[in-house]
Amino acid sequence: MEQKSISLKLKVWKQKNSQTKGSFETHSMNDVSTEMSFLEMFDVLNEKLIQEGKEPIAFDHDCREGICGMCSMYINGRPHGPWHETTTCQLHMRAFNNGETIVVEPWRANAFPVIKDLIVDRTPFDRIIQAGGFISVNTGNAVDANSLPVEKSKADASFAAAACIGCGACVAACKNSSAMLFVSAKVTHLALIPQGDPERKTRALDMVAQMDKEGFGACTNTGACEAVCPKGISLENIARLNKEYLLAGLTSEL
């Protein structure tokens, strides 16, 4: 692929902490290689800012391989930027045109308060997982894998749901700041396989209760979450969570 250099105008959200108001800051960038990833472009900008004695822009990142779920960034009105099923770290500068203005905002949701600049607090997701996104197994020898037969189609559907990296793009895209796509992926992942079956009901009830407690909105099935999910988590999972929750809710004891 032909390597090019482009010039950009970057309009980035700057905010000291969750208590301060924050505002946009504009940076001009020249000679941006189209082979750079979006985060490498930020690295270059931050190096420049540090050399100029200015404060660099804070952003979340870790593996930069699209699997850890740390990178966020709402780029030009879309979580993780313009590419389909791509995390911000895997987004490359060839997605942009010479002279373009790129607006970068943090995830916006009351449940995800800004910690600094583009970093938001996503610990509500951790607490939802702690509420039931696990299986309880007594310790001892690992059983033979073949002793638990799993239907291939169910194993595949479970695996597809387990691909969720918990980045929070679904919440960022949803007009209601709903976390239903995340919760539904985590519930589906375990509901479809025998290991998750014993705690199936309490899992759905407890995870949804925690989701509501954290201040996420209700799902209205608009599909915006599915469209921006970097891992292609399907909206069907939300319908499955609705079924899991309804059945558990109707059959649970007082």
């Binding site: 709402y74 608009t222 915006a224």
Partner: peptide
């Protein structure tokens, strides 16, 4: 529900996502 859902994002976005990913009528119930 509409009021509750609207209150979940006090600070909105500068650039709206608009129709990329969802239909206008699904967001306008």
């Amino acid at each position: 529900l509409e009021l509750q859902n609207r209150s979940k994002r006090k600070k909105g976005y500068d650039v709206q996502m608009g129709n990329r990913g969802s239909k206008w009528y699904s967001r306008s119930m």
